[in-house]
Design a protein around this nucleic acid. Structure first.
Lengths: 110, 110
DNA sequence: CCGAGTGTTCGATGAAAACCATACACTCCG
DNA sequence: CGGAGTGTATGGTTTTCATCGAACACTCGG
């Protein structure tokens, strides 16, 4: 209702630090095939090079956007606006410090 | 249908070895508050001492039975029939060998 | 052999989550 | 400034999953 001042995608994405993420949330975030694919593909690319739309997953834009939102909320991904596109970074060190070995586990079997 | 020869709970529970468990399944199994509680409580008890009904979780028997089924399928729990009750064992070594650190992650914060 | 205790199965219900199509916001380039 | 490219928000559908109640199977102790 109302409050439609500026609802674009330029609101500076909300990030959650891995330290503030419960284990359950981390596991839930990774317990999805699409999100696992995103994380793996992201891990195989240089930092800040992959825009959201550049991933090879079988879902539409809306669902994709939602998945990235979940990954952000789990402290797995950091996003930055670069021109018209939103580029991503896997929070390797930070996430691994909070959940040692978890990321390695997911990446170990691509 | 039919096939109702022996549907009790004495059919020797089907077990899945951790080695045969996909990462996704392991994560999905642990991405549930009740199952996490079961695993933690089980980890804090001597082996083969806890029957299914002896856990302090806020769900009925049916749901509980289902949760144990999931844990078995993820290679997390082994069950054995002991008289009228079914006792449990956490597959620490085996599961940790397959998914190093994952169990520790869940147990680290009780 | 019956009854209490234990756990599984079935069917149904409700809530959560994934998904899509559409509409919109923002950036850039021509 | 207008259009193409990119991502988000919303609303509604579908699927998935946790849960319950009830019926059943099994074991053991009177």
């Amino acid at each position: 209702m109302a409050e439609r001042t500026t609802t674009g995608h330029r609101a500076a994405p909300e990030h959650t630090h891995p330290d503030d993420v419960p284990v359950l949330a981390a596991l839930a975030a990774l317990a999805d095939p699409v999100r696992i694919a995103l994380v793996r593909e992201l891990a195989g690319s240089p930092v800040w090079t992959r825009s959201c739309g550049s991933f090879d997953v079988p879902v539409g834009k809306a669902a994709l956007s939602h998945h990235f939102s979940v990954l952000r909320g789990a402290g797995l991904v950091e996003q930055r606006d670069e021109g018209p596109r939103r580029v991503n970074r896997l929070r390797r060190e930070e996430f691994d410090a909070r959940f040692p070995g978890l990321l390695a586990l997911v990446l170990r079997e691509e």
